[in-house]
Design a protein around this nucleic acid. Structure first.
Length: 203
DNA sequence: AACACGATGGACT
DNA sequence: GTCCATCGTGTTA
């Protein structure tokens, strides 16, 4: 299949609750120039009433892309080092997004290795949100970029996946217990391209 | 105007 | 298992 045969996801795909979008994003593709990856693990950050969500204190300059139209990138810097990719969901005015936690190389493996500074072809190449950001060469200036339009970073359609695993989100111990325990981390079953298989179980 | 800390990853014991 | 790099953001004063 030629790269030009891939179809962009539509804005309406993202104009739904983050948890629904998260589930449907599994198996979909992200393209940046000659690199294509398949999404294998995601987390939903919902609106409202999600105390793990960056939008929990309202609109700020950093999280503005989450409040904006659906289908936009929200890239934020974590620990001063890692650029984390989210895709905005819900309707404009609702602060919600899906964090892309892991992916699997589809095209451009050697370029991904170069960007990551790694030689492995195994899951450690691309499991973890910081690695995804690095492989797609993203930084915070990519926030607000529409992934439903050609050019730059694109979200591409692909067949739905089969079985799905779910479990609590990672690294949100600061959140309220109910939000901490909510099974809003989703992953493709049967793949090794998942950052933390522990804690995931079939839905 | 200061300050504490994070939706992590890699190196090391 | 532990340690910590590294800096922008949001909170608090």
């Amino acid at each position: 299949m030629a790269a030009d045969d891939y179809r962009l996801l539509q804005r309406s795909f993202f104009a739904r609750d983050a948890l629904d979008v998260a589930r449907d994003l599994l198996g979909k593709l992200l393209r940046r120039d000659g690199v294509i990856v398949r999404i294998t693990e995601v987390e939903a950050y919902r609106h409202p009433n999600d105390s793990a969500n960056h939008c929990r204190f309202g609109l700020t300059e950093r999280n503005a892309a989450m409040w904006g139209p659906p289908g936009r990138a929200y890239v934020y810097l974590c620990y001063g080092i890692h650029n984390m990719l989210n895709l905005s969901t819900n309707e404009e005015g609702e602060g919600a997004a899906v964090l892309i936690r892991s992916a699997e190389p589809v095209l451009g493996l050697t370029e991904i290795q170069r960007r990551r500074g790694a030689t492995t072809t195994g899951p450690t190449l691309l499991t973890g949100p910081g690695k995804v950001g690095q492989a797609l060469q993203l930084d915070t200036s990519w926030s607000h970029h529409p992934v439903t339009e050609p050019g730059g970073l694109e979200a591409l359609d692909a067949p739905a996946v089969g079985e799905i695993l779910a479990g609590p989100r990672v690294g949100i111990d600061f959140a309220a217990p109910a939000d901490r325990d909510a099974p809003w981390r989703l992953a493709v079953a049967g793949t090794k391209w998942v950052s933390a298989p522990k804690g995931l179980r079939p839905v």
